[in-house]
Design a binder for these strands. Structure first.
Lengths: 156, 156
DNA sequence: GTCGGTGCAAATGCTTTGCATTGAT
DNA sequence: ATCAATGCAAAGCATTTGCACCGAC
């Protein structure tokens, strides 16, 4: 659980990203007087390697598959901490469970949701950031996040 | 509950919108072999007059305040029918309850969510439709909806 | 030794569903 | 008559929480 970069990442980009994410998380915890525990480290590490949308349930299952003992309660509690720290975001909700996504250090992305197949594809639309900033600036607000989703199906 | 337009709407635009919405709903129901009941009519009518985000709970309360007896179960069942018919959309979920919004016949709008105050403002951003269409066209897909949300707070 | 963390199980609360009754065609 | 809708109360189910025990500083 004390993953370290082993040099320039070649096929495993998540190694490059673990250090900064981990640092941000630790800092956020420390600022709140909370602790960076093995469970929290393992959960963050696993989320980074999932690298698509995930549900609390699936995350728990994956942690168990990897031989790590964590309780459901801790998974939920850690997800909330990671949200508060701005590392992940809740992104989808049309299904029964909440779906989360790693967002820190990533460009805000758009989810293209196939209403026929259920597939979800993340796409990058650079203009959106500019639109968001314009809207906020007009009102003297500071943007904290964006969520853009397009629902579509194959034209028959 | 058999609301009819009383002529060119002056201060109450919802009268203009009721007829087409009602027609779409009735058609959608008929296509499924379902019935257009007084409860469903009243619920649709009330949603139209709410004209901001609403929760199932608040909708039920409002129906009761207007002296109409409907059960929670029917409200939830009707909300689902209206979603299926494409008249309303579930839009927010970061809070405990689902929030819905009338979407039929309206431009897709963006929700500006104040993370400090909790206020939600709907804004019209015309470029988004073009972006959506472009993304879909590139992939040979047909757009069914869009959801764009910006989270922001007052810059201190 | 003091705090916070964890796991378990129980509780919460929105939403859904089973069932008997009612209503529309 | 038939087939669906309604209301009520009971279930479902993801998520949260209370509590006793454990561990880090």
């Amino acid at each position: 659980m004390d993953l370290k970069p082993t040099g320039p990442a070649t096929g495993e980009p998540e190694l490059e990203i673990f250090e900064p994410l981990c640092a941000v998380f630790r800092r956020a915890l420390k600022d709140e007087g909370l602790k960076y525990t093995p469970e929290r480290a393992q959960i963050l590490d696993t989320i980074i390697r999932i690298d698509t949308l995930f549900e609390a349930d699936a995350l728990l299952q994956r942690l168990k598959d990897e031989g790590f003992r964590v309780s459901k309660a801790t998974v939920y509690r850690t997800i909330k901490l990671l949200e508060d720290a701005g590392l992940i975001q809740r992104v989808l909700f049309d299904r029964e469970q909440s779906h989360y996504q790693l967002v820190f250090g990533k460009k805000p992305n758009t989810l293209l949701v196939r209403t026929d197949t259920g597939d979800v594809e993340a796409i990058d639309i650079p203009e959106l950031a500019a639109i968001r900033d314009r809207i906020c600036k007009e009102r003297g607000l500071e943007p904290h996040g964006t969520r853009f989703q397009i629902f579509a199906s194959a034209s028959e």
